Amino acid sequence: MSTAPIDSLQIGMHWFNERPGGLDRMFKALIDTLPAQGVNVRGMVAGSASVFNASGGRVQSFAGAEAQLGARLLGSRRHSRVLRAARMPDVVASHFALYAAPTAGVFRNVPKVVHFHGPWAAESYPGGGGGIARALRVALERFVYRGATRHIVLSRAFARLLHETYGVGEHSIRIVPGCVDVAHFNVRATRAEARRQLGLATDRPLIFCIRRLVSRMGLEDLIDAMAVVKPLLPDVLLTIAGKGPLAAQLQARIVARGLDNHVRLAGFVPDETVPLWYRAADLSVVPTVSLEGFGLTTIESLAAGTPVLVTPVGGLPEAVAPLSRDLVLPSGGFRAIGEGMADALLGRRRLPDEDACRNYARKNFDQPVVAAQVARIYREAIEAF
């Protein structure tokens, strides 16, 4: 396979610093790291005019993230034509089907690679509703996915979903895990020092969870699970960071369960302090109930040297089981989560130490490691086209 430099066009969703999310974090990571793998990058997203400078001139905005849908779709098509006129890319990589669809026909003789971050339609209607709107989204996704030469998924769980739900042939699917900047999360402060910097108690068992506050994240189960942990560890404290539509409902649940002194909602935590939050915790938890392709928060925690417990959902077990099967809970639900957290804090569940966590994250999920795998698949797509 050739290692000659290639040009890629990356079609994203938002710029991470403006609209943080897992997809946007992965998009930014690839924009930052693919050039070192011989893949030149240009990108387009929905965002502000400042995206260009924030990305070092690599990514441009085709419309505002809050613009009307029609304006965003038209902007995507118009801007793709501008980019084509400037230089035809060797490969087009799409990360979000809605903004890739309007570019149909613009790059007719260029191989396409789809980064499948998750089922957009299902995530939009996690309760199973949506009707015609959901069906249209599935159709749009299927249209984009079936036009690609290669498909990159985060886990075997998402490979099955892509094949079974969207009819993508297994021969074109490649598994590449999520990635993080391991150095960013590798805080060398001790646990006590991290707690002091955050104004946290140094003498309480601390659990940390950072998630968007929506139903599929399992935060209701996590709060209920603390009622199982509290009698065994009366000083335990769970901090849930993040924002979302369930904030008020979750706070009411905390009060109703009598957990005011044991569960706190921290709201939005700035990206620069997230590593400290992980480092301050004895344990982090990812209690997802559905649609989890990988879970970047698992690797963030391990990169900070903090073990993470996960529910056996989607790609979560794939992310952590090679390090330790004890990081995977036997099932979801508040009781299994609560018993798992209590066993971990009481030493009844064997967890890897901080060096093992960091080394595992660095070896398997550091940004350059993953970028090299993505670059190989881009070249494979070009040669197979």
Rank of each mutant, 00 (worst) to 15 (best):
A4I: 02
P5Y: 02
R25G: 10
M26L: 14
K28Q: 15
P35S: 04
R42Y: 02
V45T: 08
V51A: 03
A54C: 02
G57N: 05
A63K: 00
R72E: 01
G75P: 10
S76P: 01
A85V: 13
A86N: 03
V92R: 00
L98W: 03
L98Q: 08
A101V: 09
P102H: 02
T103E: 12
P111A: 01
V113P: 06
P119D: 09
P119I: 04
A121E: 06
A121H: 08
S124V: 09
Y125S: 00
I132C: 11
R134P: 14
R134C: 15
V138E: 13
A139L: 15
F143A: 14
V144A: 12
G147E: 12
A148I: 12
R156I: 11
A159L: 11
G167L: 09
E170T: 13
N186W: 13
A192E: 10
R195S: 03
T202I: 14
C209N: 09
I210R: 05
R216S: 02
G218F: 01
L222E: 02
A225P: 13
V229R: 03
P231D: 07
V236F: 03
I240A: 08
K243D: 11
A248R: 14
Q249H: 12
I254N: 03
A256K: 11
R264T: 00
T273W: 01
L283K: 01
V286L: 14
V289E: 15
F294T: 03
I299Q: 02
P307N: 05
T311N: 10
P312A: 11
P312K: 09
L316W: 11
L323H: 01
L327D: 05
R335N: 13
M341R: 06
M341I: 14
L345H: 07
N359M: 11
Y360P: 09
P368Y: 03
A372H: 08
A372V: 09
I377W: 08
Y378N: 04
R379H: 00
